[in-house]
Design a protein around this nucleic acid. Structure first.
Length: 418
DNA sequence: GGTTAACCTGGCTT
DNA sequence: AAAGCCAGGTTAA
């Protein structure tokens, strides 16, 4: 392991509509990125390299730790290797702007949401990491999932670098999690019932041929270092290879349909995979007329119906579009909507402490179904939220949402009150 | 074969 | 303050 020195920043031309790391790295795809708030920088270990990123409207900036044997200036081959990691991990080949406009032309609801949530890409993560991460995700919240994944790396992953006193670890391979004490250790570390799933799945994967998991990848979007080749023909239920990957993953412990789809999408490169979780099910009911008649709850049949519907609507990269709507619905991003409202109301910083009396025509209300509306009295005391950190507590979010409302009684959805 | 109760835990609400 | 609720589900009965 190496300590200390990060290289100089280097940069890659990239627009925010092609990739927004601040959204993409926070929307529940990867649970491992660390945000350094002072420098607006994101850090994570990928393929044994500590990578640090930041972004402005025209460039993605990146740097890494210097291997001790090298001079301060990175060699071109080091730089090339980092660029390859970045392009692979962020799946930079597809033209996202083009995809957004295709999805928008097919789907007015997508179009409505997408304007606020540009630059969301599906990451091309390591399949094993995605598998374990999403096993951890079951019946769990993003904050705790992130903690669990971090603990896995600290206790079982290789330490790669130490920067500013913090050690950075890589994600542990399956073989590191097959010890007979792993389940009990993970339980002590707070994994709950997922401890057994992780241990059992590690054993199962280790017992298969090396590279078995990666072999389930979309050939057009293979594992890092593998050359792409053509994949099969798109069908309503997805390509042959996707169906096969999905099915094989289900054999593993702790992997049901939703986790299998997350791994297929974010770890195996199958763009048509649409994970249907509670959020997506709610979106389907609220915005796409699902669950209106007999099928009121999410089961195998409705799961497939929702996924197939979105594949028909959005096409081969349906999972990418799904992620945009999913993100737009995350509580973490309630501020995006509110922030835009504030721009509309033209509230100036120096007026931030003044009560808002303006009537706001709000997109918040547009997406609310009438049946679920309830009356809420809103009093706005403080709308000075602009400089607060990204991650907010519930009360902060309510204040922001409130700020977008008037002081009179308005209608507000249950979902937005979360 | 489709439904349903358990399942771990920590953070937040009441 | 203590109890209840909830979080990107899966499993076994």
């Amino acid at each position: 392991m190496s300590a200390g020195a990060l290289s100089e920043w280097r940069k890659l031309p990239l627009s925010l509509s092609e990739l927004c790391i601040n959204t993409t790295l926070r929307c529940g795809q990867s649970f491992r990125w660390q945000n350094i708030s002072e420098s607006q920088e994101w850090r994570c270990v990928l393929y044994g390299h500590l990578l640090s990123l930041k972004q402005d409207s025209n460039f993605l900036y990146y740097r890494s730790v210097q291997p001790p044997s090298h001079t301060f200036t990175p060699t071109t081959s080091d730089d090339d290797h980092l660029i390859r990691i970045i392009k692979h991990y962020f799946n930079l080949t597809p033209n996202l702007t083009e995809l957004y406009s295709q999805w928008s032309s097919q789907d007015p609801n997508f179009k409505k949401k997408a304007a606020q949530f540009t630059g969301i890409r599906i990451l091309r993560q390591d399949a094993w990491e995605a598998l374990v991460s999403f096993i951890c995700s079951s019946n769990n919240n993003i904050a705790r999932i992130s903690q669990m994944v971090e603990k896995l790396c600290i206790h079982y992953g290789k330490s790669v670098a130490t920067i500013e006193g913090r050690a950075y670890h890589d994600f542990p391979p399956p073989s590191a999690l097959t010890g007979t004490d792993v389940e009990s250790n993970l339980r002590k570390l707070g994994f709950g019932y997922r401890a057994k799933y992780i241990y059992q799945t590690a054993v199962m994967v280790s017992n298969r041929d090396q590279g078995w998991l990666d072999s389930l990848s979309n050939p057009e979007c293979p594992a890092f270092g593998v050359d792409p080749s053509p994949s099969g023909e798109m069908k309503p239920e997805g390509r042959e290879g996707y169906r096969e990957a999905h099915e094989k993953l289900l054999e593993l412990q702790g992997v049901g349909p939703k986790v299998s789809d997350c791994v297929s999408l974010m770890g195996l490169g199958w763009g048509e995979s649409v994970p249907v979780d509670t959020h997506v099910w709610q979106i389907a009911q609220r915005d796409y007329r699902f669950g209106k008649s007999s099928n009121k709850n999410l089961n195998k049949t409705t799961y497939d119906a929702v996924a197939n519907h979105f594949r028909k609507l959005w096409g081969k990269e349906a999972g990418w579009a799904h992620s945009v709507l999913f993100t737009a619905d995350l509580r973490t991003f309630a501020d995006k909507l509110a922030a835009t409202k504030k721009v509309n109301v033209k509230v100036k910083d120096e007026e931030a402490d003044i009560k808002v009396e303006t009537t706001v025509t709000t997109a918040l209300n547009l997406k609310v179904p009438k049946e679920e509306d309830i009356d809420v009295k809103v009093k706005v005391e403080d709308i000075d939220d602009a400089k607060k950190p990204i991650s907010r507590k519930r009360k902060d979010v309510e204040n922001i949402v409130s700020a977008a409302q008037t002081t009179e009684t308005r209608r507000m959805s249950k979902r937005l009150r979360r």
